[in-house]
């Protein structure tokens, strides 16, 4: 864990965001990258480091909402759920009929995935080789 290198998240947020990113982009599957090389939470944290205080407050608030909202209906925090439960829960956010809920989650998903898919190792894994059509 690279908590020392974190600029925005603390240990607690790191744990929650780790659970969120692991659910959005589960390890394994169609391609894999070495988690020692690519830490999605660290990428996410470093990406948002120059946001305004207000924006960071909003992001922290959303992350804590994702963590604690299931306490109301499932009596369990997000990080205490099984991977299957987490996926079902976050799919509930992603596919929510409530526009605001859907879009708040989209914000977190976008920031996490933008950072993740910007990484060289990930780009290589998905065979993304940006090139110009006319070479120098």
């Amino acid at each position: 864990m690279a908590v020392k290198e974190l600029k925005v998240f603390d240990q607690k947020l790191y744990t929650i965001v780790h659970a969120i990113t692991d659910t959005i982009i589960p390890p394994g599957g169609a391609f894999d990258v070495d988690p020692k090389v690519v830490d999605p939470v660290l990428l996410f944290d470093n990406y948002i480091d120059s946001m305004s205080r207000l924006q960071l407050k909003a992001i922290r608030a959303v992350i804590y909402t994702i963590e604690y909202a299931p306490m109301v209906t499932r009596l369990k925090r997000f990080t205490k759920m099984s991977p299957e439960q987490r996926l079902k829960y976050l799919q509930g956010w992603e596919d929510s009929r409530i526009f605001a809920k859907r879009n708040i989650f989209l914000l977190i998903k976008m920031l996490a995935l933008m950072a993740f898919y910007s990484d060289d190792a990930v780009a290589e894994a998905i065979h993304y080789h940006p090139e110009c059509l006319i070479k120098d």
């Binding site: 959005i24 996926l87 780009a123």
Partner: peptide, 14 residues
Amino acid sequence: PPEIGLPILAPIGK
């Protein structure tokens, strides 16, 4: 490019 397009287009999970 994918880092901008995938966050919107690709669903979560596998």
